[in-house]
Design a protein around this nucleic acid. Structure first.
Length: 878
DNA sequence: TTAATCACGC
DNA sequence: GACGTACGTGATTAAC
């Protein structure tokens, strides 16, 4: 018979380790599971590597043990177990029961003692024993048959100590570990030891004398006067400390080793529990069948490939997938359409779909309810083919995003995985990624598309229910869904670009760049690649010996703020800054934009990502039209290339003035700030007056600049460090500045405190329209993570509500333009501004309705103010 | 391919 | 007192 192998796990120690090593995650039911998760990964690893025949997990029982009788202060001063961890212990017990692993705790004894007793018993029977713990004390148990695995960092990274390793690391025998503890103590258990004796001294003494008792008997032989005194003074304490550190190996355990058998069979209970806890990634590790299912759906799906569609009888409620070849649906070809309804599962090849009047009619029929995995993508893809998709009642992408914006992906496969629904592979698995990306053979492709629709139809009810539970229905149905249609129209409309003008700018820039380049080479006395921070750093800080202001991970920092500080040290700096400025304009804006201009129409069609930014803002890609230069004149000129798409039209731009600060005034109900806006004062000047305690005419330009920076900081949730950087002051000064600010606006201060408390209590914050952002890290013990979450808690309701407002305005504006039968088209949104193109004879009307709609999108207790302007190009609309 | 650095907007 | 400090997109370089 094979030799018995016993694995003993220090349950409390590993649970603690796991809890602190992993971020405080919770599953979809809001239950914290990080410790359980970490514990489980450790357990799975141990089971796999050790394949034990016997197993037991020991826990500490209750608060006091026999050690407290010896020493009342034992484990004193220890932080209370965080409730987020305590609540996970029952789950860990449940987990062990599911695995059918014996667990044990004993009144008056610690887990250490249970493990010690059992390991000695097993040792005497010549079983092989492995102890898993994070507690070094247990090293005292090591001997010929007993090995101890100590967690290093994380939970699954361990060092396994045998006799040799203990000797190597400490130069001691395992049984001397307790002597070491006796001398040096253990602050985590509040064991005193001998003051002034640390690990080094303790080991030195033990190498010479062997045990605590021998050391104390031979104090006169110890070298060092101070050390002698200390040993003499703390004799009793040293002996007691040793006693405390000694693990009891004869605890009155009522459990037979033989009953701790482990069969290494994963039961259905385990799989059930994993599902319940949301451990989807662990599921396929324990369940090979599940793994296969997850990788490649094994359950067959029946579907019909339609080679013609004469009467589109797909029912009046269907999941529809319009698969697109390219990620950029503006120029991507449609790969096929999947339709799943109570009439069955269908795949319509593109060429059939585009030929079929019946299908077109069905897709355009507003009375047929359609669920989409990404409505904007499908709508725009079809629109390019002359089909106007109607009847979209549910967009899974947006639903998933609203339910938890921080989920990394909201495509249908990811949503399905999160909800534990099987039957669809990821796009990456089907299409590959990067250079290897390709369209698979027809059969694989059609099945994948149909599966997407099938799974979509399955998850819609769950998503709907979750939206309802989280009070997101209004936001979803009334705002985001209608907005997606508006955004799609804006994208497809596109913005006209004056290509010639852009090309001319490019030529000019290239010439200038050449000039500056040669100037820089001359000043540097060498030729190099100015665009390479590495080479530039070498030239500036080695060749030219300029002082190093800041370093990065890889070398010298050459960022603008560093160069700014070196400006008067060398002529070359100014040239480099100018080179950077022009280089950026040329590569990102001139060349970058020219690359994405639609060849036939000379228009640019961006895509707005509606399901990405954590605050609820939109983002814009391919190209990003939300970061076209404006601050510096040279860059601002890029806007001259953005023109109306019709003759005698203008670009009309309208932006909210100080929308975030107005939102803050409203949310915080801060009297002073509301007053500033109600009286239409300049808010930065007003801030300066309050913070510096001066009258209006005493506010200097610099005071206003500083006040503006603080307001900016409040709006973007930056730290005192961030503010110190932007104002060029110390962190301390910045901190005091913020403090003064908050004292000037007590309502704001109160809000900041309240919202952090609320976030801690609820686990999330919300915007005015109930958009949610979860902040699990707000209870982190890591200062950075926690601080960041706190600033996010303060900032997200402000920025997110501002995003709500402009989104609402966009939906209203679209309705209004249609209602008034105007030709004016909304083209872009840049966070707090809307850009239109309009016939000249509609300008008057727009001057009236644009501010009206935008200012009344949502009612606040302060007025919203909109400024507008128009001109022949975007540049001129200033 | 991927990571690091830099820079643009709000 | 540490820690590494608004977000998002995109270009370029350099190491893999």
């Amino acid at each position: 018979m094979a030799k018995n192998k016993l694995v003993l796990i220090d349950g409390n120690s590993i649970a603690y380790r796991a809890f602190f090593a992993l971020p405080l995650l919770n599953n979809d039911k809001g239950v914290y599971t990080n410790a359980v998760y970490g514990f489980t990964t450790m357990l799975l690893k141990v089971l796999e590597e050790e394949a034990p025949s016997h197993m037991l997990v020991a826990f500490d029982a209750g608060k006091t043990t026999f050690r407290h009788k010896t020493y009342g202060e034992y484990k004193g001063g220890r932080q209370k177990t965080p409730p987020e961890l305590s609540e996970q212990f029952p789950l860990i017990r449940e987990l062990l029961d599911a695995f059918d692993i014996k667990r044990y705790e004993l009144e008056n004894y610690e887990a250490d003692d249970i493990i010690g007793t059992l390991s000695k018993t097993a040792d005497s029977k010549e079983w092989e024993v492995k102890v898993i713990t994070g507690d070094k004390d247990l090293l005292q148990l090591v001997d010929e048959h007993v090995k101890v695995s100590l967690t290093k960092k994380g939970i699954t990274d361990v060092d396994t100590y045998d006799l040799n390793l203990v000797e190597e690391r400490y130069g001691l025998k395992p049984e001397q570990i307790i002597d070491m503890k006796g001398l040096m103590g253990d602050s985590s258990d509040n064991i005193p030891g001998v003051p002034g004796v640390g690990e080094k001294t303790a080991i030195k003494l033990l190498k010479e004398f062997g045990t605590v008792e021998n050391v104390l008997d031979s104090i006169d032989q110890v070298s060092g006067k101070k050390l002698k005194e200390k040993l003499e003074d703390h004799k009793d304490q040293a002996e007691m400390s040793k006693k405390l550190a000694t693990i009891e190996v004869e605890a009155p355990i009522e459990i037979e080793l033989e009953s701790c058998t482990y069969t290494n069979e994963i039961s259905a209970k385990v799989i059930e529990l994993f599902k319940e806890l949301g451990f989807n990634s662990l599921l396929d590790r324990v369940d090979s069948e599940a793994a296969e299912e997850a990788e490649a759906p094994t359950e067959d799906i029946d579907y019909e490939i339609l080679n013609e569609v004469n009467d589109a009888d797909f029912g009046d409620e269907a999941a529809v997938v319009v698969e697109c070849l390219e990620e950029n649906y503006h120029n991507g070809e449609i790969l096929g359409i999947g339709i799943v309804s109570d009439k069955g599962n269908f795949f319509v090849p593109t060429e059939v779909a585009l030929e079929s009047d019946a299908l077109k009619k069905w897709l355009e029929d507003d009375s047929i309810v359609k669920y989409l995995p990404d409505a904007k993508q499908a709508t725009v893809s079809l629109a390019w083919k002359g089909i106007k998709l109607n009847g979209v009642k549910f967009d899974a992408l947006i639903a998933s995003y609203l339910l938890n914006p921080s989920d990394s992906s909201h495509d249908i496969a990811s949503i399905a995985t999160r909800l534990g629904v099987k039957g669809v592979s990821s796009n990456e698995a089907v299409y590959g990624k990067g250079a290897k990306q390709k369209v698979p053979e027809q059969e694989v492709l059609s099945e994948h598309i149909v599966r997407k629709a099938f799974v979509l139809r399955e998850v819609v009810p769950t998503l709907k229910e979750s939206l309802k539970k989280n009070e997101l229905e209004m936001l979803f149905y009334e705002l985001e869904m209608p907005l997606s249609i508006v955004l799609g129209e804006m994208e497809q409309q596109g913005v006209q670009v004056d290509v010639e003008r852009l090309e001319q700018m490019g030529k000019d820039l290239n010439e200038q760049l050449k000039d500056i380049e040669s100037k820089i080479f001359e000043l540097a006395g060498t030729e190099f690649n100015i665009n390479s921070p590495k080479q530039l750093g070498e030239v500036l800080f080695e060749k030219l010996q300029l002082p190093v202001i800041k370093k990065t991970k890889t070398g010298y920092s050459t960022s603008a703020d560093v160069l700014e500080k070196l400006k008067d040290k060398h002529e070359i700096i100014e040239e480099i800054l100018y080179y950077r400025q022009l280089g950026k304009l040329n590569s990102t804006y001139v060349e970058g934009l020219l690359k994405v201009v639609h060849r036939d129409t000379e228009k640019i069609h961006t895509r707005f990502n509606q399901a990405l930014a954590q605050t609820g803002r939109l983002s814009s890609i391919d190209p990003n039209l939300q970061n076209i230069p404006i601050r510096l004149e040279a860059g601002r000129k890029i806007r001259q290339a953005f023109i109306p798409s019709e003759n005698d039209w203008v670009i009309f731009a309208a932006d909210y003035s100080q929308i975030e600060l107005r939102v803050l005034a409203h949310i915080a109900q801060d009297d002073k700030m509301m007053e500033a806006f109600n009286e239409e004062q300049d808010v930065h000047t007003k801030t300066a007056m309050d913070v510096f305690h001066v009258e209006k005419d005493e506010v200097t330009a610099d005071m206003r600049r500083q006040a503006k920076a603080v307001n900016f900081g409040i709006v973007y949730g930056i730290s005192d460090y961030g503010l110190s950087q932007s104002l060029g002051i110390t962190r301390k000064e910045a901190g005091e500045f913020i403090e003064r600010y908050l004292e000037s606006f007590p309502g704001v201060k109160q809000y900041m405190e309240d919202i952090v408390q609320q976030a801690k209590r609820e686990g999330y914050v919300t915007t005015m329209l109930n958009r949610r952002r979860y902040l699990p890290e707000i209870t982190s013990r890591n200062f950075n993570l926690r601080s960041f979450a706190e600033r996010t808690a303060m900032n997200t309701p402000i920025q997110g509500s501002a995003a709500d407002i402009i989104k609402k305005a966009m939906v209203e504006m679209d309705k209004r333009l249609k209602k008034e039968k105007l030709q004016t088209r909304m083209l872009l949104q840049v966070h707090d501004e809307l850009i239109f193109e309009a016939p000249k004879d509609e300008i008057k009307k727009l001057e009236e309705i644009v501010p009206e709609v935008m200012e009344n999108a949502i009612q606040l207790d302060v007025p919203l103010k909109v400024d507008y302007s128009y001109g022949d190009t975007w540049y001129d609309a200033k």
